[in-house]
Write a protein that binds this DNA or RNA. Structure first.
Lengths: 222, 222, 222, 222
DNA sequence: TATGAATGAGCGTTCATTCAT
DNA sequence: CATGAATGAACGCTCATTCAT
């Protein structure tokens, strides 16, 4: 799965058209490494192989750059996820497993995984970033997951739950994995094992959604 | 349930002893509102009703203030949770429900709920803050929840799960609720309903931990 | 030879009367160690075993403290030198040797040796300090040395020189020794040997003052 | 004789290349006037016709600026003195008179004369400044004067003296003249006449170095 | 007399943003 | 398009001075 953010700027590809993507790639790197406030535009320019002034030819301000990074990085992945769901024909549980894998490959294992931390940290200071991220990323994904849960309930695969809120609960561990990787996991002692984390996640999520046997309550389903 | 952070500094209580707590309360407020980097020491001082220099009579630096805020805010709550678990005698599920309620009352519904966002945002820039929060908050809580899961499994109340990682999954939605409240929930349109969120959370968590019926697979627990 | 500046404050001597001298001793130490600007009143107070506020019971300001240190440290030594000269009966050359020794014992080898550097560095910023030091220290000493040179010329011991300016030249190496000890000599590699320095100084000074050729009359040395 | 430090920055010469020298000239002026600690970067910038931030485009810190001022100001003069000595063919006494004149024209009569006071005052607080000044200025000059004395002794022009220490004694009155000009001479009442001072200096220095007549030593005149 | 908490003005340094070239 | 020198507004931290106790 590809994103619009270029990889480490290849020197030979300095076409004018490629410039913005190169800048965004550099900006993403540094924003994720240092956080928004601690990032100097000089660092971004240095990593992109340009000078600070050049950034202003493409983006109006540091905040504008942040918004571009968020949008260019996340929206394509959202689109892709939506396309995947639209064409999937298997069981809902299978679909959720696939989605988790896609999410891991497209975001979790890439530099994009740093975006949620960035956005959460700055949402309070930059309403436009909050709105952008919510409307372009969170809302579509929420609706996607909400529809998925509904699909599972409709088919009898899942028991009846509060779909609107359950999708939030379902997303939380995935987001937290990203946050952890870009906060505590930076220190070796606090690192965790993502596959094992994801396995535990899918285990309890699907178990929790599975219909209870008719004759048994939750507590007594033993 | 109370915290160690005092309310808005009463003018008449300028006792030396009360000062540090007043400063921490003000610092917490502003840090949570603005984030660490965007917070000016002048703002904290203003809110505490003192001048900037006074802060340095009690704390060595802005980072030191952050560490004090985190420690003074969270450690007592952790202790309280540990005490509660140690004396509880009911079912593990009930204990988990109680813990969620305690957590909500002591943290979620107070200004302390802003600390996780602060720490996650700054953990990368301030290793000491990361270490402090992990060792004094995350680790004890993780172990607490891990023991809880083990207790449930031992008693047959819960099915067998990867306790170490499952506690991370179990904590994630609670942390995410805090993060949400201090990022997107600031904008009315994106607010959510905490009780409903917590209900959905406990619903799926306990359902997911409940033993499956012996004769039936996950899908077919009917 | 004693000064008015007390040694390391003896705890048992905390008579009110002794306080000002203790403060001055502490102030001299720290001023000499760090320079005027880099010295914090807190450091002086700490060394004197009092608190910062106490300093203001005895001295109006940091500059006032500096003036007191300079006056209390140097004036007694000047008086002593004047007394010594007044009672001396030997040759002028011998008197100058004695004066150099007295100067070394009373100033060069004590903490007072740091005062010239202090005064020279701050004279431009504090006219009162400049005036004080010049009128109470430099002028008396200049006149003393000038009279000495005149005495030597009158007696035929010295050749005829520009007494007024020669006393400045004569003082320069002694002052420079003090300055060196409190600047470069702080670094071992740049230290020098004071006795050897003083020997070379007296050697050339007295040789330079001695009457020239044999055929020229040397009234007192024939 | 010129120095590398430009005069009052001409507005029309805002070439990038000229900037550093303009900044150093301004810095030298203000450092000498106020001393290092009392100098505000704003003052230097104002005098150079730039803003404070501009200083940091060329120098890393206030201390770095001090080092640059010292190096750029003194090293060329040292080189010049060394070149002059290397090519001189007259008598050693004549050479010393010439050196004193060169020193006066290149340093004593220029703003550079303020540097020794600066360095002596700050050597204790800034080891790097001390080392720089000692290794790049004091040591070369000391060696130069030491060789000169040796040359005079070898040729029989001078009597035998402790060359290593005598060069220190010989330099002291010149340094002291600089210090005086930038401390007490600021106040008219305490000003002195440099030519007369230098005449007295050369008078006694050369007289003191001259060989004694065989029959009458200085020492035997008691 | 002595304390020490509090002040408030000040300074070195940083960095997003601008603009002449 | 691109540069990079310059700006100027901040902000963290310091410390001489004050004053209620």
């Amino acid at each position: 799965m590809k994103t619009d953010l270029a990889g480490p700027a290849p020197r030979w590809a300095r076409r004018k058209q490629a410039r913005p993507a190169e800048l965004l790639a550099a900006a993403l790197d540094v924003f994720v490494e240092r956080g928004f406030a601690a990032t100097r535009l000089d660092d971004i320019a240095l990593r992109a192989g340009v000078t600070k002034g050049t950034l202003y030819l493409y983006y109006d301000s540091k905040e504008d750059l942040l918004k571009a990074v968020v949008r260019a990085g996340m929206v394509p992945v959202v689109r892709e996820a939506e396309a995947m769901v639209a064409h999937f024909t298997g069981s809902t549980a299978e679909l959720m497993r696939n989605l988790a894998a896609v999410w891991w490959n497209a975001i979790g294992a890439t530099r994009l995984s740093g975006i949620p931390k960035l956005v959460i940290a700055e949402a309070g200071n930059f309403p436009e970033v909050a709105r952008l991220y919510h409307d372009e990323v969170i809302r579509p994904v929420s609706e996607l997951i909400g529809r998925l849960l509904q699909r599972g309930m409709d088919s009898g695969e899942f028991r009846s739950v509060d779909a609107d809120y359950m999708q939030r609960i379902a997303m939380a561990p995935l987001v937290m994995l990203n946050l952890w990787m870009h906060s505590f996991s930076r220190y070796d002692a606090y690192a965790l094992d993502p596959p094992r984390y994801l396995a535990a996640y899918l285990d309890i999520l699907l178990a929790g959604l599975a219909p209870r046997s008719e004759t048994q309550g939750n507590r007594s389903c033993r």
